[in-house]
Nucleic acid binder design. Structure first.
Lengths: 219, 219
DNA sequence: ACACAATTGGGTACTTCTACGGAGGTGCTT
DNA sequence: AAGCACCTCCGTAGAAGTACCCAATTGTGT
């Protein structure tokens, strides 16, 4: 996650050309409202799903893309992969509902330029845009914090790392046997963890656990 | 859902005093941005969860509350119950992500004044507010349509009514036995439906089905 | 009257999960 | 060194869900 050379260095007189991608018009309007008073920013387009986003990036060649993760058709992270695969030069700033450290890591690994939560303040958003436009990488305060101590992040149940890992797999509909195979441990061990998770969360059967996983942003 | 007498008739010279409730500041900003050009509207406060919403309704006595459903602490529908229980006079307009007919029905049953989806256009939103402020009831075009033919709503899997009902119960973590009890049918019948749901959706085990339920807005 | 879908219920055999119980090893903190 | 949390694994038993098969009833539309 080092400061990388911008793929398209922002000319310091040209405005930053911005593409907004979110499946909710209301959110896009919110972003517009926040940014329209900013100098040196120009919103050149909007998309409401990942597939459209890729197309528009290709057509409009924006300097910066603000990208939601959860969208129909094609999600934000997959869109990033596609954009990077096609070598379309632009900075990408992720704007997500979920403070899921896995998302953040994947986003960083894919070469995005920042990760914002949707409860971000106006000031933080404009700052993040400036940093991202210059090719830096910005994460929300709260997230940066939760990345430090890896655990705790958003977890009122005090699950351990292993338990969260297994809960994620359960929520994905995997069987204990599968999970055991993937983690290279015994089925009995998976059962133990599963049992511990149930006890900590009070989350009954697989369906209940899946809801809790979603609640924790592990979905 | 008949046209009911407004609990607080909107004086036609006084502006409508509006309280915005959504757990995402960004969405609140979007609403603000859309409404600030409107005449006869005054945003007097914001809240980011249901509990705070109830408190603010009591303190500020708004004419109209725009209320999200999915929020931490206390969800929107529960907040409506509380507001109605305390007999706080105000119109309530639900603004939700989900076009779930159950939500709409529950919202209508609780005496709200409308149900908007978050992908609502600016025009539709202002219209809905005007109608709601006068004590009417407004539903999004798309939703009104899906309420007609009860089925289909948002369901690419062609589930039947009964199957959706049972899927909802499964997602709630209920056991087949419980579901059978509540619906007063045999466990075997629940299994039959469950099996049909699995086949239609390809949704493997309980965890998978729960994810699909969430996807369909039945969570 | 007939076809069709939906709902209901069942048989059998198998897999998976759940609820108890116990235990050994590792690594960190005090 | 002792305590503690975490991860690992096991036994036994029963409950729950899954995968196949089947059929009767009801209602809807043609």
């Amino acid at each position: 996650m080092t400061m990388q050379e911008p793929t398209t260095p922002a000319q310091h007189d040209q405005p930053v050309r911005l593409l907004i991608v979110d499946d909710h018009e209301l959110v896009r309007d919110g972003i517009r409202a926040r940014l329209e008073t900013e100098q040196g920013l120009e919103i050149i387009g909007e998309a409401d799903n990942g597939r459209e986003a890729v197309t528009l990036v290709e057509q409009l060649q924006p300097d910066l893309v603000m990208l939601d993760i959860n969208m129909p058709e094609m999600n934000g992270l997959d869109a990033v992969e596609e954009i990077r695969a096609r070598e379309l030069p632009c900075q990408i700033l992720i704007l997500s509902l979920y403070d899921n450290s896995e998302y953040v890591r994947r986003a960083a690994a894919l070469g995005t330029n920042g990760y914002l939560l949707k409860d971000v303040s106006q000031d933080e958003m404009t700052m993040a845009i400036k940093i991202a436009a210059k090719g830096g990488f910005y994460v929300s305060e709260s997230l940066a914090h939760s990345l430090d101590d890896e655990n705790a992040s958003n977890d009122p149940y005090n699950l351990t790392d292993r338990e969260r890992e297994i809960l994620t797999a359960i929520a994905a509909g995997k069987l204990n046997k599968q999970i055991a195979g993937e983690l290279d441990i015994s089925v009995r061990t998976v059962e133990s963890h599963r049992s511990a998770i149930r006890q900590k969360t009070g989350g009954g059967n697989a369906a209940g656990l899946t809801r809790i996983a979603a609640e924790l942003g592990l979905a």
